[in-house]
């Protein structure tokens, strides 16, 4: 495939086209997309994938601008996938991430792509996983994935990355609730942003709240310690500690085989998801558009048959 070669050559336009392909909702694009990913997966790069999640407006994009600039100045190559949640009634959306990433987007060593999440739950969008395969093959050192953290979404996002980071703001007690509910299970680093100006005091208080909450969490032996870091994205403070922490955790995880284990788990998760998706779309295609379902629904209403008769009937038919 011509596209594969070009992606491997880090051709900007081709990487972009490849991502469009894997994100496409048109069934006709699916075959090509499968081929592309199947080939690229055989050319793995060395990317470390880092997820940044957190509530809206907490400063994720601003953090990525500051932290990314810091990395680019150290000659790292960086790709950013920003999943933008905004979308309105008619389905259109405004992708505003670039207004927060005006410095870093100038660098030749970055590739920045925003994707409208189309309301898909989980903050990750259809195709995000595939996009990170493309970017890995294209040779980026880091792939950052920015997602909005609402409810379930963190689990999904965490399933795509090697390191998962939760960004929080000063004095937001709400997330502390989340901690107890188990965010700690998959967040590796907690970053308290906006540690500047009037907010400084609040920020350090929030950080120590997190630290003490984490102390209740019992760490298994072969697990890296979870870190709480204080940064100011606006004043560009604390970026060195973030990269140091990321590097340490990666090193620890590689040493303890957690790194590979995670990737393996994610792969099997992906496979299952792929199966689920395929069944789902086949199901949608085969069941529901026909008059048979319509008639049987009527029969259920009349009390002639039960809904389980109907669902068993279709399942049997589908599996046949």
């Amino acid at each position: 495939m011509e596209l594969v070669k070009k992606v491997l050559n880090n051709d900007r336009a081709s990487i972009a086209k490849a991502i469009t392909l894997v994100e496409s909702s048109n069934p006709k694009d699916k075959e090509e997309s499968k081929q592309l990913i199947s080939s690229l997966i055989n050319h793995p790069g060395h990317s470390i994938r880092v997820g940044f999640s957190g509530p809206p407006g907490v400063g994720k994009s601003t953090f990525i601008e500051s932290f990314g600039t810091y990395l680019v100045n150290k000659n790292y190559k960086l790709a950013i996938l920003a999943i933008d949640p905004s979308s309105n009634i008619t389905g259109g959306s405004i992708l505003g991430d670039k207004t927060r990433m005006s410095e870093i987007s100038k660098s030749q060593n970055t590739f920045i792509r925003s994707t409208p999440s189309k309301g898909s739950l989980g903050g990750v969008s259809y195709g995000t996983r595939e996009a990170s395969i493309i970017l890995d093959a294209a040779g980026y050192d880091f792939i950052f994935i920015e997602t909005v953290g609402v409810g379930q979404s963190e689990t999904m996002a965490a399933n795509l990355v090697d390191i998962f980071t939760l960004i929080v703001g000063p004095g937001s007690g709400d997330e502390l609730q989340g901690i107890k509910k188990g965010i700690t299970e998959y967040a590796d680093i907690f970053i308290v942003n906006k540690n500047d100006g009037d907010l400084k005091l609040q920020a350090s208080k929030t950080a120590s709240d997190y630290k003490s909450a984490l102390s209740f969490y019992s760490k298994q032996d072969n697990q890296a310690a979870k870190e709480v870091l204080l940064v100011s994205s606006i004043e560009k403070q604390g970026m060195d500690t973030v990269i140091d922490t990321i590097n340490e955790i990666i090193k620890f995880n590689k040493l303890n085989k957690i790194f590979d284990l995670r990737r393996e788990n994610q792969l099997s998760y992906w496979i299952k998801e792929e199966i689920r998706n395929q069944i789902q779309s086949k199901l949608d295609l085969e069941v529901g558009n026909d008059t048979e379902l319509f008639d049987m629904t009527k029969a259920v209403i009349k009390g002639e048959i039960s809904i389980y008769d109907v669902s068993d009937h279709f399942l049997y038919k589908f599996l046949k």
Binding site: N88, T90, G92, I94, K98, S102
Partner: peptide, 12 residues
């Protein structure tokens, strides 16, 4: 345009 249905990227 976004209201009408486009995906709009807004530059700085």
């Amino acid at each position: 345009f976004a209201d009408i249905g486009f995906d709009i990227d807004m530059g700085p």
